[in-house]
Design a protein around this nucleic acid. Sequence first.
DNA 1: GGGCTTCTACCTTCTAGTAGGCAGATCGTC
DNA 2: GACGATCTGCCTACTAGAAGGTAGAAGCCC
Lengths: 192, 192
Amino acid sequence: MGTPSTTSDAILLSARALIAAGGYNGFSYADIAKTVGIRNASIHHHFPAKADLVRVLVARYRQEAETGLAELERHVDDPAERLRAYVGYWSACIADGSAPICICALLASELPALPETVAVEVRAHFRGLSAWLASVLQSGSRQGRLRLTGSAEAEAELFMATVHGAMLSARAYGDPGAFNLVTRPLLERLSS
Amino acid sequence: MGTPSTTSDAILLSARALIAAGGYNGFSYADIAKTVGIRNASIHHHFPAKADLVRVLVARYRQEAETGLAELERHVDDPAERLRAYVGYWSACIADGSAPICICALLASELPALPETVAVEVRAHFRGLSAWLASVLQSGSRQGRLRLTGSAEAEAELFMATVHGAMLSARAYGDPGAFNLVTRPLLERLSS
DNA sequence: GGGCTTCTACCTTCTAGTAGGCAGATCGTC
DNA sequence: GACGATCTGCCTACTAGAAGGTAGAAGCCC
């Protein structure tokens, strides 16, 4: 996520930061125009409507997440370590403020108010993340490196929900440490 | 939460439902006016600004929560049962759609975009709920009815975050059962 | 020239919020 | 008990500004 190479990228990057701050209805085309340094109308050339912009944004976000998790699987073997790496990634993002919350978790909270095309993408993220976590937990259990108490799928839902809740707590308390306070015992229970 | 007795109550009730659907920026005075059956300007008579309306709304929400938890303590003795009752309350609210999500959890997600007066109330809710959970966990641990792995405070944060995350998942999946899928093992781990 | 990209200029609708008035309830006061 | 005065709740009518979005021209690169 370095310097955007195209105007379209710059728009998406700006919108992502704005959504992370205040959700779908928390930003306007004017806000983006200001930060990107273009005119309001120019955004419509790249994204006809706001729903299009956010849909593409979330789709790209999902793709990045997928790529990141695949990358993580290539570099880390131990399933327990994979979970730690995933949580550690978010811990770092929250601590340095680069991504203070998962935008899909945020958008999920206001799901009934979202355009359907965006809602579809948000739901897909939840399903995708849950499936990845389940596969990691499953293989960890098979290898005897992770101790599950329920099915891998149920444990995955529990894990994902806890991480999302930890993001909310960190934001509510204004303290990145709150995220770790919640996720550390979550990881320890599975490992020990 | 029956029929509102005053217009002011009706406004607050309508606003609560609208916030639960789309957050702080997800509703307008016009939306409230439509459902309550009054004119836009009349709302300003009761609440000068939007921030005032939502601040009062959240303050009342917190008070109701406090009252509800106190009531729960009077009727239920066993700490484990208290936790089950708390989770069960939300499970029912989500299932029947009367309160599909905790509005403070929702507002926390868009905290940076909230008026400071509202943000203060939201933070207070997190602190209050966490403190209550910690006290229940503490007494449950003392009585040997709950098995804690960390401090009561840390377990309380974990518990609260998981419940909030479960609300997000239920909303994302459009399935109230997702809330139970996450919270059941959460309760079981503490009880067994 | 053709195709992008961005611009200016504009539109419509919605936003929170204001000003002032009007009907009815509640006053103390004579 | 009649009187005005004040208060309350809601109204109509309005404002300025912001919202998302459109039309069409200008600049620019191949």
